[in-house]
Amino acid sequence: MDSTLATMYPGACDCHIHIYAEGYPLAPHATFVPPPAPVSAYQRMQKELGLTRAVVVQPTGYGFDNSCTLSALARFGDAARGIAMLPPQAQHDDNEIARLHEAGIRGLRYMMLAGGLSSWSNLEADAARIAALGWHIDLQLDGRDLPSHESELKDLPCKLVIDHTGKFIEPVHPDSEAFRSLCRLLDRGQTWVKLSAPYETSRVGAPDYDDVALLARTLAARYPERCLWGSNWPHPNAQPRPVDALLLDWLIRCAGHENTLEKILVGNPEAVYGFSPSLTSRRGVASTS
């Protein structure tokens, strides 16, 4: 898969990874102790899969200390972007946000599940503050709660990215109100969804994760310009640990069409994270950047 993917989709991006490195202590609220997952280990996996870009998402275990993520971005260089976590607005200023932008941060994580430190009450103010920089809110929640928050999410002044195929903790059907709510947000035009981490919510399980795959296929078919993909490496809480190459294979099957896959892996990440347009487009596929 490695050389073939790299040749067919130059600039292919893994839009959701975490880095855990020695020398960066976990926050007191951390719910688990992950094994070390340094940049060098990810780069080996990245090369094996034929990926060239990555988005480093601040782990909840590090809380508001973005030091490890920023160090990783420095190691990756221009081939990576980052998603930070910040305390309530009163505790950070525009100079800090400008510093993070210069370091490669392009989004603010809102983790609304166990271990997350974000609050819905801060969302509107944070979104307004980051909009001018082209940042987005990276939202992870139980997708079944989307109808309750749809109105405020539709009114955000910035881009919005929703994690893990909506992360419906109990997988739903495409005709459910919760999934329709996700679709209405995608209709907004400034919302994207990551077709990622099916193992976190599937009740069917590997290798096909059919219950989550149904949702991913539906989204890829309806919204090819609004889908992203992430490996969720290094999967510290998953037992057994999924095989990254098989997760990419799952995405390829869900995409169903080469043009759609090119958008998910290359064009859409360029639009969301501000990567430079790829120097080479795959023959026969129009650039979406």
Rank of each mutant, 00 (worst) to 15 (best):
Y9P: 02
K159W: 08
F76L: 09
R188I: 02
L113W: 00
P147V: 14
A80M: 08
C254F: 05
W250K: 00
D2F: 10
V161G: 05
P59N: 06
N259W: 03
P87Q: 04
S121E: 13
E150M: 07
S3E: 14
G82F: 05
R217V: 02
A238C: 09
P147I: 14
H136P: 05
P34N: 10
G166V: 08
S278P: 00
G274P: 07
R81W: 12
A206V: 09
L113M: 14
I169P: 00
A206D: 06
P174G: 04
D14P: 01
L123I: 05
A84Q: 07
V193D: 02
P277H: 09
L182W: 10
G134R: 05
V285G: 01
A197C: 00
G82N: 05
I264E: 00
P198I: 00
T288E: 12
A286L: 15
S202T: 11
P207L: 07
G256L: 06
P147S: 14
S287M: 01
R282C: 15
A80Y: 06
R184H: 15
A37V: 03
C15R: 04
A21P: 02
V266H: 01
G50Q: 08
F275P: 01
D210E: 08
H16G: 13
Q46E: 13
F32K: 02
A27I: 00
V204I: 11
E170S: 15
E258H: 07
H149F: 14
K159A: 13
L117M: 11
A125P: 00
C158G: 05
K194A: 06
M1D: 14
R53D: 14
K154Y: 10
D2A: 15
A271I: 08
A79R: 11
D126Q: 10
